[in-house]
């Protein structure tokens, strides 16, 4: 590896992260608008045409807000928790192939890398909740740790079917294996259903947003956070949503592939945004789960079904040989 390669990798990384952060900023406006229209409201209208500059106004406001630190909090951990969350979510991007031959790092263990980082991301919520020294935050952190451990297993198992069909854990190879419209969502419909629901739970979205359940825990693990630190948590959540949507597109919906009249990266983004819209749609539609129902669902239904899916995929693969 020479100096040129290193410079090229740095340019790629900075470019992807910068574009990604702009997307994260504006997806928040998309969410507010989408949910507002579902509820027959207008959403943000004041800043710019139909509120398009609202995210910028929000960012400036958050940036200049006072940074409040609770008196008896554990300061080093309180500081480090949101940073862990953002780093874990943003570095997952490194292995996502945006179009043919383009990803920052073409790892052979791509899927495992994303699973590993999503489990590290859970520390942000757990440690943030614990360090705040508040009962609401603490309960949010505890719920999150149990939820993430349970749903991680189901999510990993649901992706095993995809690994078996493509014979690889490299995300680019998985997309290539789905060439000519042979999307894995058809044979792996069970795996996809489990993956999508587990991804909702991993990213703490409705109906599994128990770690921050507003109606009972104020704001869960983020209750004591304010200003930029809270914004980092917020960013980590939306970045996680993007990464999970991108993983779903890559593993089940053929990644960048699509009819030739649009460039591959546009197809990829359109599919990702379709998933993100689905997240918002679910948020506007479904009520929150009860905690014991959530755990029961994860352990008693998803894990057995995901295991059955693996056995079934293996059997079909042997029979078709």
């Amino acid at each position: 590896m020479n100096a040129n390669d290193i410079v090229w990798i740095l340019i790629k990384t900075i470019g992807v992260v910068a574009v990604f952060l702009i997307h994260v900023m504006f997806v928040q406006l998309f969410e507010r608008k989408a949910i507002a229209h579902m509820q027959s409201r207008m959403g943000p209208m004041r800043v710019g045409w139909h509120g398009v500059l609202q995210p910028i106004a929000d960012s400036i406001k958050l940036f200049f807000k006072e940074d409040i630190i609770p008196t008896n909090s554990d300061k080093p951990i309180f500081f480090i928790a949101p940073i862990i969350g953002v780093i874990a979510a943003v570095s997952s991007l490194a292995v996502i192939p945006l179009w043919e031959g383009f990803s920052i790092a073409n790892l052979n263990v791509g899927i495992l890398y994303i699973l590993a980082l999503s489990s590290v991301g859970a520390y942000a919520v757990i440690l943030g909740g614990w360090a705040s020294n508040s009962k609401y935050s603490f309960l949010g952190g505890l719920r999150s740790s149990a939820q993430v451990i349970s749903y991680e297993i189901a999510m990993g198992l649901s992706l095993v079917g995809v690994m078996m069909m493509s014979g690889s854990t490299n995300l680019s190879d998985i997309v290539s294996a789905q060439a000519e419209g042979r999307w894995f969502v058809v044979p792996q419909i069970m795996g996809f259903a489990i993956f999508f629901i587990a991804a909702l739970a991993e990213t703490n979205r409705v109906p599994f947003d128990l770690p921050e359940a507003e109606t009972e825990l104020v704001s869960g693990f983020a209750t004591e956070y304010s200003g930029m630190r809270w914004a980092l948590f917020f960013m980590a959540e939306y970045a996680g949503m993007f990464v999970m949507s991108a993983l779903a597109v890559v593993c089940f919906f053929g990644g960048w592939s699509g009819p030739g009249f649009l460039p591959p990266v546009i197809w990829f983004l359109m599919k990702v945004y379709a998933f993100i819209f689905l997240y918002f749609w679910i948020r506007a539609t479904l009520p929150r789960y009860r905690y014991d129902q959530l755990m029961g669902l994860g352990w008693k239904i998803f894990i057995p079904v995901a295991l059955a899916n693996i056995v079934l995929t293996g059997l079909i693969k042997i029979l078709l040989k």
Partner: peptide
Amino acid sequence: EFLAAIQIIVYAGAILVLFLFVIM
């Protein structure tokens, strides 16, 4: 690389979270 990924998933992602759960 496989061992590295498994190290993070199993130890950092599962076992250490359980430690934390108990310690808290």
